[in-house]
């Protein structure tokens, strides 16, 4: 996706505001009602990784992860590093990824979501060696991955509108 510098500021601010709204919604309503946490930060970062080929993507991921750290106990720096890793991975597989069609989008989002969590688990395991903690997270995270993948249809469309391009 080619983005001109003129529309970056406006689109970036709108994206961050949308993200902030979803995070407030998730932290104050979803978690307490369902016990499920919906991690929108990964979804936004995946969108930027999948659709941007410009140098703004790392900075957007950094901003998203910093804002996410307001609502979670995760480190923004660690999550940004995972995001940067995904820029590389997605760049390598870009040609083979079929983003057209709702079903493909859902599948790709779901797979990358799982991969993101997997990388996070591996880092946590090596850092804290707390397998029990990770085991308790897996079932919750799988369910929230599934739910958020469904949300991704609407959120990706909104982001497409914000950035003025349908992919």
């Amino acid at each position: 996706m080619r983005v001109t510098l003129n529309n970056i500021n406006k689109s970036a601010i709108l994206s961050l505001l949308l993200f902030l709204f979803l995070e407030v919604l998730s932290s104050s309503i979803f978690v307490s009602l369902s016990g499920l946490s919906l991690d929108f930060s990964v979804l936004f970062c995946l969108y930027f990784c999948l659709k941007f080929e410009v140098e703004i993507a790392p900075y957007l991921i950094l901003l998203i992860q910093w804002l996410h750290s307001l609502f979670s106990s995760l480190s923004w720096s660690l999550e940004t590093m995972i995001g940067l890793f995904f820029i590389f991975i997605i760049k390598v597989f870009k040609e083979t990824l079929q983003l057209e069609g709702g079903r493909n989008r859902i599948l790709i989002t779901f797979v990358f979501y799982i991969l993101w969590y997997l990388v996070r688990y591996i880092i946590y395991f090596f850092k804290f060696s707390n397998l029990e903690y990770l085991k308790s997270q897996v079932s919750h995270d799988l369910l929230s991955c599934f739910i958020i993948t469904i949300f991704s249809i609407v959120i990706f469309k909104l982001l497409d509108r914000i950035w003025g391009k349908n992919v």
Partner: peptide, 20 residues
Amino acid sequence: LHIGLVLVLCVFHLGRFGVR
């Protein structure tokens, strides 16, 4: 280059404040 810049910032932050 931009990925590298952001990465340096993250590594510095991680080194100073840790994973959590």
